[in-house]
Amino acid sequence: MRGGAPTAARAGVVPCGTCGLLSRPAGAVGPWTCPRCGDRIASRRERPFQDAWAYIVAAAICYLPANTLPVMTTRTIKYEEPSTIIGGVVYFYESGSWFLALIILVASVIIPLGKLASLAYLLATTQRRSTAYNRERARLYRLLKVIGRWSMLDVFVVAFVVALIQFQPFMSVVPGTGVLFFAAVVILTIFAADSFDPRLIWDAD
């Protein structure tokens, strides 16, 4: 579509980020406030990619300790056994619960890694002003926003196992630092997806 689709930016109107109302800026210089909700209206981010990249890098850094540090440790009179996320997957698989192993593998490994890789792909292609697969990239972005939260699964599992398995001195379970890094990965990837403006995908179109 040469000349471009009729977008708000091309028509000189600005949608309010809070309530969605379209309005025409009264003067050339801001700050403007939305006449309906009263929030400040920003035209677009000045450095649209920087925050998202920062969150992605931070999440990728946290992903390593999240998977290598134990998320919980089982203590009995005889032994003390730390377990990692992958350890939990292997444990369920070997004990015959391949379905649970699969759920944890998807929630804790595939979703966070897939989300990081997909966000990096979206950012990189959008930064190069690519117009290929726009619809698919838009769909991918919407998918990422929905699935990211499921990575918190293991944090909840640990919380409830820890709360219930407290039979001192025979057996008890304590949480490990891996949980904290895992929660950090989830939060950082949610921030990353939130700070990416999907309209940028279409700006080059």
Partner: peptide, 8 residues
């Protein structure tokens, strides 16, 4: 305006 692609 579409929140995802800005189309009016």
């Amino acid at each position: 305006a579409c929140p995802d692609c800005d189309l009016l």
